[in-house]
Design a protein around this nucleic acid. Sequence first.
DNA 1: TAATTTTTGTACTGATTGGTAAAAAATAAT
DNA 2: ATTATTTTTTACCAATCAGTACAAAAATTA
Lengths: 206, 206
Amino acid sequence: MSATASTAAPSVGRPRAFDMDTALQKALEVFWLKGYEGASLPDLCEAMGINKPSLYAAFGNKEQLFLKAIELYENRPCAFYYPALEQPTSYQVVQHMLCGAAKANADPANPPGCVIVQGALACSESGASVKQALIEKRQKGEVALRERLERAQAEGDLPEDADPAALARYIGAVLQGMAIQATSGASCDDLRRVAETVLQAWPGKK
Amino acid sequence: MSATASTAAPSVGRPRAFDMDTALQKALEVFWLKGYEGASLPDLCEAMGINKPSLYAAFGNKEQLFLKAIELYENRPCAFYYPALEQPTSYQVVQHMLCGAAKANADPANPPGCVIVQGALACSESGASVKQALIEKRQKGEVALRERLERAQAEGDLPEDADPAALARYIGAVLQGMAIQATSGASCDDLRRVAETVLQAWPGKK
DNA sequence: TAATTTTTGTACTGATTGGTAAAAAATAAT
DNA sequence: ATTATTTTTTACCAATCAGTACAAAAATTA
């Protein structure tokens, strides 16, 4: 039995006629727009420019394709999130997150909103594990922000009476709400005004 | 041709063996939990305790059933929203909205979240009109809030330099974000802390 | 050139989707 | 009791769903 899965291109045999990364990018667009269950295999195949057996050979099945597409999403359109945590002050951390989200959620080059929010929010039993995976991604992001805000408080960058957990959940909610706004047609400027509203009131703003 | 649709019970013929309102309530629960496309007709029929022809005779088709369920949702679990606009100050308006949402989105008696947010956020072409209907419901709520905040500003209840449109969009985003938080497992208390965070910073708070 | 390996295209599978035809059953009016 | 009207039940429809079997095609290795 060979070591790894079908992802690495072998040196023998007929070569793959498509680029896996660009195909995955196309798959992401479809999932982003239609959600996990709303994206049919014909939809995906057409966008990816391949047919079903090629899709299954390269990516496993629909669920694995979706999870790989989410991974790509985190590394590309949503790549602003975790680096924002490295900003020197809590204000700047939140500013980078909110402004990054404003740009990413309403980028005309991509579908509106956030696939981690809208990819599998409410679905049938067959999407339950994907839905759970997205819940965990959202929670993981919020935990990282909470820990960053706890550090900020320890450093005196946030007032003593601030509640890092509540603030992290609040920012998480605003980010997710911005994604909904984008799917409803809000522009990048619209979202930036939401971000500005949050930032104007940031505790111990600096 | 008779005047109205099949909704009013006629006096002749075999009587309906189920109550339309409780059946619609059950349908709402299914749509709330699984979304418009994730809810299958067998799902709906089982929850409503009827079979397909009865469903179609009473409610038209799946889309009309969904729209009627949404109407019920607005009049029952989500009934706090528009009355909140009648509070005397903008602070109290927003307070009632946020606290009502905290309670409604995380009520253990109902599915978590908000069906107007998660009912058809990302879906296939066959759900496009339902998706659009929900977008318009969300926007309508936001417009009503914006107009209320404009009035508040005219009454001196909001600072001159406040931006009612931006504030309404911001509150809309927070409300929608709270719905996402609820679907991820946030409790009513969790959501109340989000509400509190917003209210602490409300401009010209009173 | 021949053998091997992998991808490709076509065609198919069983299950499920939303929706309906038709007859039986239950009531009110005659 | 019979007729008219409506709902219920059972059985079905075509379309679509995710997923796959199989053989032809295209490349490398020998």
